[in-house]
Design a protein around this nucleic acid. Structure first.
Lengths: 335, 335
DNA sequence: CCGGTAGGCGAAAACGTTTACGTAATTAAA
DNA sequence: TTTAATTACGTAAACGTTTTCGCCTACCGG
């Protein structure tokens, strides 16, 4: 559109070589302060900005990272992205977004398309459909990668996670303290470490308090709102749980609907507790007891790790950063 | 990391020129089917993917668009991004994300940094802090740009918006039909066409029904949760409105809190209605009457427009696409 | 007066594509 | 049979940087 203003143009106007201009722009020690000032002034005057493609091609750096996640329209992930983006700004990086929709093939396809130098590194929260450890084992050898929340374990890559086991244990104990003994478990992310840890926390809390685990009280998540609703209604009718412990946010709406449609009072007839990052949890009817993950902080931490790696800084701590979730007790567990 | 596989390598292995390989990969008519097949097979076998930087540099196209929005952690914007990303996948484009945090200087800085060929086009929902028409007047001459939801008018650029005036009129009428006469207006986006249209719809509905506009019943949004809460409490105490009509989602939590803290019953003492894309509106206590915008569709439409422009397809319709919002009547307006 | 050593700068190659243009061989038209 | 057109491919330049290497000047110690 506009007449190109590039390094060559600057060189001509100043009667110096393009090499000198380039070095001056990059504040090289080889160039005198006087020349640098001349270059910087003219660059500002002509509104020069370097061409990213040329720079990327030559230097093999893009100052860009990719975020690969299941879906951006989710409180947890949108908060994570917010955190990532803020840190990226500080480090001068650009952020590409890819949604997998929980489809591992899409996930692999996108990720592969990033390996030709499009990005310097990847931040990912993997899809729940499958646990394909082999793919990621190879991937982490090819490009700097940081997992957040939904991770692969035992790989040579940084992971940023939360205290899923502990907080699930604690939440289950809370329900037990409220007098519940038939605590149903709404099971999500069952293929992933996070999902397994949450379930383990639930099981261990039961065991610790001498409550038998009842398999019929477990409902697994399906990507079908109506189906989940029916499952929960069936659960409530057939097995009369006195609490619903949901391991993912997606169960909240069907759980509330199911109780409403069956005329069950929360928390009198059945108590409800869920992992959730909904900002409106306190305004629900009744207000919902939640386990909220520090999504924003997770994004920030993951991004910080990646940029440290990209800048060849040592990661002082170990490879697994664990942030604390928060249990907020509200009316839905009523005690 | 891995040994580079580029078109030069393919050319050597097949004993043909790199020009032929390049053309074959791009399915050029100049190349015989036989040669194309040989190239394609070897490319697949060696896992060749073109280097984006080189391609961008030479062709001056990036197959990348930027999304510039106030904040990704917002139901409306995260849904929009979801829509944009899905369409981008279909067209084979990549999506960069930039958050302005409602800061027009950041907005301009980011946008300027995209003009050196980093992206082929921009999708933006502008910040509410200021209406800087001059900047965008120049910008749209330099790069294909589509506005969505928060737009600048009278520019040579496509806009995707909603029926803000009509739906606000309709919502105000709904409150009037419920018997309200002192309808307070919680005013957001006042610098932007969307905000002005909503307010105009409110005013005109009042006038149509012979209700005088009371200036004291207007509260303007500030980026300070506590301040907004205090303002609403003051409003409720001093001016006794019988309804709160909020033009933005951000007022919901303080509005509910204010009513709770002042022991005002919704909807008996005061009715509440808000623009909102909260998925949990129906689960609130009481359930919230909302105007929801088709955020996902807005993102999709905006992206489609941009990609049509980038592919030099004619935009059949005019430059302003208007999608319909939905008024969902619930308990908070109780009638 | 000579050798060495910085400091400051330029020439040119390289990164991996795309593409304008040229050319040879084959086919179609005259 | 000659000419024109078409098909299929190659040569080489170009995109805008970064970076290696080398050159020149000035200066300093001996």
């Amino acid at each position: 559109m506009a007449e190109a203003v590039n390094i060559k143009r600057l060189a001509q106007e100043l009667n110096i070589s393009i090499a000198t201009v380039s070095k001056a722009l990059n504040d090289s020690y080889e160039i005198s302060q006087k020349t640098k000032n001349r270059v910087w002034n003219l660059a500002k005057e002509l509104n020069y900005t370097p061409n990213p493609a040329a720079s990327n091609l030559r230097s093999n750096k893009t100052k860009t990272v990719a975020v690969v996640i299941p879906c951006v329209a989710n409180n947890f992930f949108s908060l994570s992205i917010k955190g990532i983006e803020e840190i990226a700004r500080q480090y001068g990086y650009h952020v590409l977004i890819y949604q997998t929709h929980e489809n591992i093939e899409a996930e692999i396809a996108f990720t592969n398309s990033l390996l030709n130098g499009r990005v310097d590194g990847i931040l990912t929260s993997v899809s729940s459909s499958e646990y394909n450890s082999e793919y990621y084992t190879n991937l982490v050898k090819k490009i700097p990668l940081v997992f957040f929340d939904r991770v692969y374990e035992n790989l040579d890559a940084v992971r940023v996670t939360t205290d899923d086991y502990e907080i699930a244990f604690q939440a289950t104990e809370h329900l037990i303290e409220c007098g519940c003994t038939r605590i149903a478990y709404l099971f999500g992310l069952e293929n992933l470490p996070a999902g397994k840890a949450r379930f383990a926390g639930y099981l261990d809390a039961l065991k610790t308090h001498g409550i038998a685990f009842i398999e019929q009280l477990v409902v697994k998540y399906h990507d079908d709102e109506e189906f989940n609703l029916q499952q929960i209604k069936e659960l409530l009718e057939k097995h009369k749980p006195d609490a619903l412990f949901s391991s993912i946010e997606e169960f909240i709406i069907p759980a509330y609907r199911a109780c409403r449609e069956l005329s069950l009072q929360i928390p009198n007839d059945v108590k409800v507790l869920s992992f959730s990052n909904l900002s409106t949890a306190a305004l629900l009817n009744p207000s919902l007891t939640t386990i909220s993950q520090p999504a924003f902080e997770i994004g920030r931490e993951a991004a910080k790790c990646l940029f440290k790696i990209l800048n060849n800084k040592q990661l002082d701590d170990e490879q697994n950063i664990i942030l604390k979730s928060v249990l907020s007790k509200r009316e839905s567990t009523g005690c």
